[in-house]
Nucleic acid binder design. Structure first.
Lengths: 152, 152
DNA sequence: ATTGATATTGAAAAATTTATAATTTATTAT
DNA sequence: ATAATAAATTATAAATTTTTCAATATCAAT
């Protein structure tokens, strides 16, 4: 990871379909180099180019954020199980009131209930779950500051 | 929004750089149609094609999730102010313990402190803030089920 | 300095995107 | 129902981008 990687990422953060040609001209390297770099970043799972939708604009989905307290000996196990559930789209460890934050998106409340009952509740090691149904998303941006070589 | 829109979105959710040609062949429509649809979806802010990075793989950032309780009369105002802060990348209204969930990404703890002190704390109407520093992200997927015409 | 490994470049071929006009499909008013 | 209008889709060609690959350059270790 060097300055060029960061610069390429910055460009793709604002538009994931920016042509490698454009990026190469802007950054003063060859298209091939941009291509190689992007490929490597994607292979190493540092970068992912995806179409993102606001779930509330494509239907009436159930978006839920869970705050979980977990037995620390079981943390790895709980994470592994959660990650394996398709409807679980975000899992992160945190400090503070909850050990884990988990986001689930289903296309209905019935399906949410199914995931909670058969998927999440069945996991051994979860001590408590606080759940919040998301009503509306006001901001969802992906161009956060990836920093730079010099700032590390 | 019809079945074709959903199918195009589904394809882009897994790879944002899938060629329109590929999509068109797969869905049995012309490239032009795919192009028009994607353009319209992006214009209407239903779809966004972006490069997403795992912030923890591009440095040592501060990722924080805030749970906020807000005076309901001030909710619009608080949301407006939060959305305007560049480091705030996610704002959503919720049921449950918190009225708002907010995610902030900064490239350091110092910057996080600055955003909290000058940006967030300065907003009138926030009654309480619970903050959790995210330590690691285990899953971050974007291919949630956008449903279909028939399922709506 | 030399070797080996890795990354970048340049150039041509293949493929995709873009633009545009014609056609089809859908919508609205009569 | 029918005609008129609008909107979306198609087909085609030109412009651009992506891909491939051999040659060159860069870097790290000996």
């Amino acid at each position: 990871m060097d300055e060029l990687d960061f610069d390429i990422i910055k460009r793709l953060q604002t538009d994931g379909r920016t042509s490698y040609t454009d990026i190469s001209e802007e950054l003063g390297v060859t298209v091939g180099t941009v291509r190689n770099r992007v490929q490597r970043l994607i292979e190493n799972q540092i970068l992912k180019i995806v179409g993102v939708v606001n779930p509330f604009k494509t239907g009436s989905p159930s978006v839920t954020i869970f705050g979980m307290k977990v037995r620390h000996q079981k943390l790895d196990h709980v994470i592994k199980k959660l990650v394996a559930i398709p409807e679980v789209r975000f899992v992160a460890a945190a400090t503070g009131v909850y050990d884990l934050y988990v986001e689930v998106i289903t296309s209905s409340n019935e399906e949410l209930y199914r995931v909670m009952k058969n998927g999440i509740s069945a996991i051994d090691g979860i001590e408590s779950i606080e759940s919040s149904l998301i009503l509306e998303i006001f901001k969802q941006s992906y161009d956060w500051d990836v920093g730079s070589q010099s700032s590390q």
